[in-house]
Amino acid sequence: MKLVNSSFWKPYLLLLPALIILVGLFLGGVALAIMQSLGYFPLLGLEEFTFDYFREIFADPHFLTSLGYSLYISLVSAVISVIVGVFFAFQLMRLADRYRVINILYKLPIIVPHIVVALLIFLLFTQSGFWARLAYRLGWIEEMSQFPALIFDRRGIGIIFAYLWKQIPFVTLIVYTIFKNINQRWEQVALNLGASKIQVFWNIYLPLAMPGIASAFIIIFAFSFGAFEIPLLLGPSYPRTLPVLAYQRYASSDLSQRPYAMAITVVISLISILLILIYKKIMDYYQLKK
């Protein structure tokens, strides 16, 4: 009976325009990627489904190093961003209202496009960049090439710098909003009872803001894990991050590389989906606690 009822269908009908875009563009693309990663690519005469491409990439040391490299970069940049961001948000909350400029200033990096950030980092930190020149002028180094290699380096310092610059303000923004909404009286009571500032932070603010902090962590981790332009512009030729590796395979004039490229993107997507699941679990956990 429910199915004949028009009010049952109405919300779906209203959602239809959005659903068409979501299904047609996004899920359609995902379905194609999955099919090609499983070796179904009629254009090349490949018509049998197989897991061979996945097996091959997981046996390929290049792919494994890239996977490790991507995880490493995302983890380091997300952890540092969260620590600094939370600390910054806590300080920001204690600022008097007359320091409003700071409140606007720190948000600026959020709106600056990633490609611009990459360029800024590049100009500042290459071995012929601003800091290298300055250090050379000041006589701290005898030759420009003595300046530490921070861009295109295998430790990914340049990439991590770029992510920190973008992500710290983002974490701050989220956590600051949560801190602001925490009932101030708890802090007053605790202080009255002789708690130190650190104790207030550790026992009141941090636990109450934890769901927000955790979700901020997952968001920036997932974003940097799948991001392409910053590692492309600032990363070394070896190891490449997973998205860069996938693109390189995809852009090859040799079409038989396509299934490998798609297998890599499917792996990236699976890891991102896993992160979403973890995020949901965290949210459920805190919901229950309340």
């Binding site: 071995q127 012929s128 420009m144 295109f152 380096d153 492309l232 512009l233 070394p236 030729s237 070896y238």
Partner: peptide, 19 residues
């Protein structure tokens, strides 16, 4: 050889900079 310039434009820049 730990890394290579991603484009020839970058190679040209490093040559122009004396690197």
């Amino acid at each position: 050889g730990e890394t290579y310039p991603a484009t020839v434009a970058q190679l040209n820049n490093m040559f122009a900079d004396g690197e």
